[in-house]
Design a protein around this nucleic acid. Structure first.
Lengths: 349, 349
DNA sequence: ACGCTCTCTGCAATCGTTATCAGTAGTTAA
DNA sequence: TTAACTACTGATAACGATTGCAGAGAGCGT
């Protein structure tokens, strides 16, 4: 109710506020026991606001994500929280992928946090030049661009991820390999496409532009893109989806068309899905340790905040691996008699 | 770098800090344009810390959940964020279901937030008596207990939820109906069990203690509980799981045993699961609007924070409904010849 | 007794804002 | 002309903590 201040504690014990303050910060004081008791009696808690003002530190780090309900971002946050430990609190903020909101949030955050860990949806959500003015360090997750040299970042090996998937398809004998890609103005969208194309090129598979559909990293986009692929005259026999939400959408499209996985279509998703093992068949995915990516971002932030360090921008790369479950098979496993998608010959042209 | 203060803005324009402050709070001032420009030039942002100290308000509301990576809690947070709008920021904190951490967090939060929205895992995570001393209002989500009359809360109709599921099973002809329950020291765990038993009693179905397994609201617990049920001499033909994580665990157990749903076993989960439609068969669930539950909690909090209101504790109840998909069927649909679970006669005793 | 270090103390300034208060014009009313 | 009102202003005291400073004792060696 009535907030109790350090002054009241001091009065009760009969010492100065300075002494109580020193006790609070761990110094030896004579009336130690009395102070401890007075604090308990009065139920005193130091005001964070006053401390912040005096010290200029908040012991708070914001994590900004486009959508906390996406399990992927939730895991990042969780990793960051764990790495923050007792020293820092985590202030979580959603942007809803809305650039205006993002800008406003960054402004509001001033004086409230010591630093920001940010997972942007696209690369230009916030004008790059705007960053310098916010006055706190920023660690980017999954984002790299021109000004990247100025900022810390934690990236994932997007190119390798796509490559692993494509190589898997190729090893099984697929040649009609398609990708449902993310927005090309986002780092993951761009790099995952690059990895896809690079792997195809390396295997000397002709690049069929119809086999790359750019979508929006959302479920509906994945559904639409997959539908488009299934409607091609010569549909692919293997599909890589560039993120978890689009994977779900794509699987819905596949299911609604009655296409069988993996007999008629091999499928790999980028980023693991909770319950991937429960799907029929279990989904093969390109996976990374998302929690540790969040943790790594927090670790970098904490280092940056330490005034003893004057580090140059850090760039950490998280590895990916292919987790094989049951959604891929050889393309010739199925007979074409009643397949809904094999209407052409296996050899194009 | 060097933080710019209101004083510098005032100096540059040639007015007093009071005038700048007034401009900031929306009053008419003569040098309006000059101030605006100076703020932009100097890139000045008011310090939240100083404002907090002066006003005693933080415009921040904490949402405390056991695990943000659980999509269910993520949705609560999201709803709360939406309802918070521009006026309040949301500070998210995980407890990891750890009571010590919970206590510590509540302490740390003092002076940092205006109020707390809390989703506790069990009812006694925090000593009820402890709450009075934290000095900010608390809105509970999914929790009710002795001291409930003192605190606002947003509950879900747990009893009805269980009842809907059981009635569905009964309507299909099931009599061997089991439940994988949550911890009985939690509000949802207790009430969902109560609803389960009440519905059975109403239908005059004998209460078989073996058909209620208390688990931990986690995936592994769900797996173990389901395994236990399948191992019974006279296993159930219909199972209700008390939350989403246990549902996933239970489905894994079912799958690993090769039991067919819904032919051999009807299944209903409490709380919807993302991708429930993708499962084979699509999962029938008891669902509520989780986002709106979070939003409702935030709305109550904002009202409580308004000094004009002197409200008695609010208790809002969120409705539930049964979403029928494909995981339930009549128990006699299947023949017993090769079923892995029907070893007894359909009629018990 | 004297100086010296050591440990602890209280005073007071300070962090960046906002709110109170007492002005100072300028306008209008009587 | 004076009074009353309006519309703004600047100086200054808070808000609740931390910290530099000077000083008070205590302990010790000479």
């Amino acid at each position: 109710m009535t907030t109790v201040t350090i002054t009241q504690v001091a009065e009760r014990v009969g010492v100065s506020v300075a002494t109580v303050s020193r006790f609070l910060s761990g110094n030896n004081v004579r009336e130690e026991d009395a102070i401890r008791e007075a604090i308990a009696q009065l139920n005193y808690r130091p005001s964070a606001a006053a401390r912040n003002l005096k010290s200029g530190k908040t012991s708070t780090i914001a994590v900004i994500v486009p959508d906390i309900a996406n399990p992927f971002f939730a895991s990042i946050v969780r990793g960051a929280e764990k790495a923050a430990g007792e020293k820092f609190m985590v202030l979580l903020v959603n942007t809803d992928g809305n650039p205006n909101r993002e800008e406003r949030i960054l402004t509001q955050l001033f004086g409230r946090v010591d630093g920001v860990i940010m997972v942007p949806l696209t690369e230009d959500e916030v004008a790059p030049t705007a960053f310098g003015k916010f006055g706190f360090p920023i660690v980017f997750v999954d984002r790299i661009s021109k000004e990247s040299h100025e900022f810390d970042s934690v990236l994932v090996d997007n190119v390798k991820g796509s490559r692993l998937a494509v190589e898997k398809f190729i090893a099984l004998g697929h040649t009609r390999i398609a990708m449902i890609g993310g927005p090309l103005d986002s780092t993951p969208g761009k790099l995952r496409r690059d990895g896809f194309h690079a792997a195809l090129k390396k295997a000397k598979i002709e690049n069929n532009p119809e086999y790359f559909v750019e979508a929006d990293f959302n479920q509906v986009g994945g559904f639409a893109a997959m539908t488009k692929l299934l409607d091609l005259d010569n549909p692919p026999t293997a599909v890589l989806s560039a993120n978890n939400l689009m994977t779900i959408g794509a699987l819905e499209a596949i299911k609604s068309r009655g296409v069988c996985v993996p007999e008629e279509l091999s499928f790999i998703g980028f980023d693991d899905i909770e319950m991937a093992t429960l799907l029929v068949p279990p989904l093969t995915v390109v996976s990374r340790d998302v929690e540790s990516q969040g943790a790594e971002a927090m670790r970098i932030m904490i280092n940056r905040l330490d005034p003893n360090n004057r580090l140059s921008p850090q760039h950490k790369m998280i590895d990916v691996k292919l987790i094989e479950r049951g959604s891929c098979s050889n393309p010739w496993l199925w007979s074409s008699k009643d397949s809904k998608i094999d209407q052409g010959s296996k050899k194009v042209k």
